[in-house]
């Protein structure tokens, strides 16, 4: 009797593991945000073993001549899930994939698209070749098994915007812009046919922005001021909900100014890095998720430059 109980116990434990393992699926829900245009919105969270790194926005546009994909997500598993979503909506093949920049949550799904052209800014291609493996390793550490079999798949087509500022796919006309404010090489894509701007991580909305590779906050602010003058009706941020009101860009500029002023003031008072990390964050940003942890990271990334300027 005891033996049978034991056996049952083992079976149950085994079963629960396999059930748990089977639960690692992203359950992506496509939102139609414009004609032919679908968004897979990520969570307003940091990378965790629960969310599998699904904290990023990816999107695809279904044209008569095939599907255009903007960013491929944080893992091979995500890329495959994205492809499944696409094939549940259309029979058209994926013809163009774009990687907005070299951060891991935006390109590590590339393996699922290795039968198509993967475009990125030439600098982005270089940065992925240089840092991609380290980023991937860090993602394995942060989200674990979700990353299984994920490897760096480099973009195949360098996108020379000077030569190709515009690309027509089916009835959709895509215009490309290069900015630098977030990562040093940020690709933005405007669908002139629908008025949707895929803003890459130049824009975050309701989720604190990240600064690991920003050339400077003032450059980022300049980029956003520029972007305000473009013609579009909908903005798809790299992280956070779609915006049709212009508030996303305003929030970005407001926060970047606040961050810049806070770090400047702190450096002029001689605060140490740890003291700066503990400073209060203005009330008006309390609705934005992860402000504290991203503020601390930004102090890490940027404060020594402000300190240097104060000497």
């Amino acid at each position: 009797m005891k033996k049978i109980q034991c056996l049952l116990c083992f079976l149950l434990v085994g079963l629960s593991y396999s059930v748990f393992a089977a639960k690692l699926s992203y359950l992506l829900e496509p939102q139609k945000i414009a004609d032919d245009t679908w968004l897979l919105q990520g969570k307003l969270e940091d990378f965790t073993r629960k969310n599998g790194g699904n904290i990023v926005n990816t999107a695809f546009i279904v044209t008569e001549d095939g599907v255009v994909v903007f960013d491929t997500g944080p893992s091979k598993r995500y890329g495959e899930a994205m492809r499944q979503v696409i094939s549940s909506i259309t029979d058209k093949p994926v013809v163009h994939v774009f990687n907005s920049h070299h951060h891991p949550d935006h390109f590590l799904g590339n393996q699922a698209f290795n039968d198509t052209k993967i475009w990125a800014l030439p600098e982005t291609g270089k940065l992925i070749a240089q840092h991609g493996n380290a980023f991937a390793e860090n993602m394995y550490r942060l989200v674990g098994d979700w990353m299984r079999s994920t490897e760096v798949q480099l973009p195949t087509e360098p996108l020379d915007i000077a030569a190709v500022p515009l690309m027509a796919v089916g009835k959709h006309h895509f215009r490309f812009f290069k900015m630098v404010g977030h990562s040093g090489a940020d690709l933005l894509m405007l669908d002139e046919t629908t008025g949707v701007l895929f803003a890459s991580d130049i824009v975050f909305y309701q989720r604190a922005l990240t600064t690991p590779h920003t050339p400077s906050l003032s450059v980022w602010i300049e980029n956003l001021e520029q972007l305000k003058n473009w013609q579009y009706n909908t903005i798809v941020p790299g992280h956070g909900p779609v915006d049709t009101t212009g508030l996303a860009v305003e929030q970005m500029i407001d926060y970047l100014h606040w961050l810049d002023n806070t770090l400047t003031a702190a450096a002029s008072q001689g605060l140490s890095m740890n003291e700066v990390m503990a400073l209060p964050i203005d009330e008006r940003f309390s609705g934005i998720s992860l402000t504290r942890s991203e503020f601390v990271r930004s102090v890490f990334h940027l404060y020594s430059r402000y300190e240097e300027a104060s000497f």
Binding site: P212, S272, M273, N274, E275, M277, A278, S293, V296, R297, V299, F300, H301, S304
Partner: peptide, 16 residues
């Protein structure tokens, strides 16, 4: 002993 919650840059970790 003040340290950040995570060593974002392991070559420059502030310790007070």
């Amino acid at each position: 002993v003040s340290v950040p919650p995570f060593a974002e840059d392991p070559t420059q970790v502030p310790v007070t």
